[in-house]
Design a protein around this nucleic acid. Structure first.
Length: 431
RNA sequence: GGAGAGGUGGGUGAGUUCGGUUUAAACCACAUUCCUGCUAAGAAUGCGGCCUGCGAAAGUGGGCCCGAGGGUUCAAAUCCCUCCCUCUCCGCCA
């Protein structure tokens, strides 16, 4: 949720910033008007409410004093004032509801560093990394045996069984076998262990209440992108960002506890509505995948450092795995609803010959904290909303694909980096 | 899933029988100050959150919050309804 106080202070600045994200100025004007109207009605209702409270007190005094006639007169006055109060309150609530309805659909104000653009074509590539780059190596030229798409490798080695996955749950629900399954398990453990020095490991629920989904900004806007279990009022989480953001929902944290860094590996569920048939071969786009997330609650002052730490760690995993990747600075039009600033990490997949998004590192400023009501107490005793930051390290399905292709040998086997061996029972070769 | 007990401010905990003299007592913890003086004790004061009015600010006025949401009433922590959570026992179960 955007900051209404800021909107009152500098409406033109907010309007201009939101216009870059496609929010019409008239919509913002309506918010301002509703806000003014809401506060006017609120004052009226509260004034009447105060009158009723005062009269009720007098009724009590009169009755104790034995003056029943006076008590009855005061009661009658209070009753009619109460009726006025009720209608004023109803009007106030109606405006508040309308205001909230609009506000929940307004995206975050983009940071000044975010480039203009209406969709992914407006994103800006920041830099690329590949093994040996620090020693002057050129961008890798992948050999023919690496130019085989992962779905062919997976089939040949018997480690990816899309047919069985489809039989069980439908298309885009992959099923991994043997070394393929072992590799996925290894990746999560490998990444989680790397974060132990600064991030607490969490195992959250895979489902969340509507209220929880509201906090991150996934609802009400993206309901169609998520799986719902209507009977129980639950949603399948699309990322562990959802449960982690609500872990301290409604709490006031001590400033000394910040930044509070968390990491979690969860299943992630996405309906991918509207993207059927688009880039869906193999595991390029799936309904269920595993992902390790890095997350931090922090003060505004700490947010830049917290963001950079997440980005550095996400990059660190890709580097440790020896994969080629690039950083994209998302433009205003491609930014997620809740984000003010996002950098995507894309791994290069030699077999598919494409860059695949495997992480999205985002700074939400206080947008999610306002929805989730997560605050902290400053040294001077006042409270303020925290900032939230998160990023994947990493989304495994696509990393899995890039690993198979990058490390495929001429004989068809896959020899993975030695760092994974301890997590795969001592043997990092898939044959 | 069934039965019972319970959810009050940072913590403990009173108030709920019979709605109004409590706009939530008391204690603990915490903060500041004072006294004393040394690894302790005592005293005073303060002690939440959210929304909102006035004010340049310091400040000051109003409203809301006793698990959540409704209802009754001039008036609800207190009465009624629905739901959630915790604990105990039973049932079921990886």
């Amino acid at each position: 949720m955007i900051d209404l106080a800021q909107l009152r202070r500098e409406p033109d600045v907010v309007k201009a910033a939101l216009a870059r994200r496609g929010v019409e100025r008239e919509t913002v004007d309506e918010i301002v008007a509703l806000d003014v109207e809401h506060r006017r009605l609120l004052q009226e209702a509260e004034g009447l409410r105060a009158e009723v409270k005062d009269l009720s007190r007098q009724v009590g005094d009169a009755r104790r004093g034995g003056d029943l006639d006076l008590a009855e007169t005061l009661s009658a006055t209070s009753r009619s004032t109460g009726e006025k109060e009720r209608s004023a309150s109803d009007a106030t609530d109606a405006v508040a509801a309308r205001l909230r309805e609009i506000l929940l659909l307004i995206p975050n104000v983009p940071d000044a560093r975010v480039p203009d653009g209406v969709d992914e074509t407006g994103n800006v590539e920041m830099r690329r990394w590949w093994p040996g780059i620090d020693d002057g190596a050129e961008f890798p030229t992948f050999a023919d045996h690496q130019r085989v798409p992962h779905w062919d490798i997976g089939l040949a080695l018997g480690i990816l069984d899309l047919e069985s996955g489809a039989k069980i749950a439908g298309s885009m629900f992959p099923l991994y076998r043997g070394g393929g399954s072992r590799l996925l398990r290894a990746l999560s453990s490998f990444s989680l262990d790397r974060q132990r020095d600064a991030y607490e490991e969490i195992r959250p629920p895979s489902f969340a209440l509507t209220e929880t989904m509201m906090s991150t900004g996934h609802l009400p806007k993206s309901a169609d992108d998520m799986y719902a279990i209507e009977r129980d009022g639950l949603w399948a989480i699309p990322t562990s960002e959802v449960p982690l953001t609500s872990l301290r929902r409604g709490e006031i944290l001590e400033e000394s506890a910040l930044p509070l860094r968390l990491t979690a590996q969860t299943q992630c569920f996405r309906r991918e509505a509207g993207s059927a048939g688009k880039d869906t071969r193999g595991v390029l786009r799936v309904h269920e995948f595993e992902k390790v997330e890095l997350f931090a609650y922090c003060t505004p002052e700490q947010s830049e450092e917290a963001f950079n730490d997440v980005l550095t760690r996400a990059e660190g995993v890709l580097r440790a795995l020896g994969l080629t990747y690039r950083l994209l600075l998302l433009c205003a039009g491609d930014l997620g609803t809740a984000s003010a600033y996002t950098i995507d990490l894309e791994v290069f997949s030699p077999g598919v010959d494409r860059w695949l998004e495997v992480s999205s590192v985002s700074w939400f400023r206080d947008f999610q904290a306002r929805r989730a009501n997560v605050r902290y107490r400053r040294a001077d005793g006042t409270t303020a909303l925290v900032n939230t930051v998160n990023g994947s390290a990493l989304g495994w399905a696509r990393v899995w694909a890039a690993l198979l292709e990058t490390y495929r040998q001429e004989d068809g086997t896959v020899v993975l980096p030695e760092v994974l061996a301890p997590y795969m029972g001592g043997d990092a070769t898939i044959r």
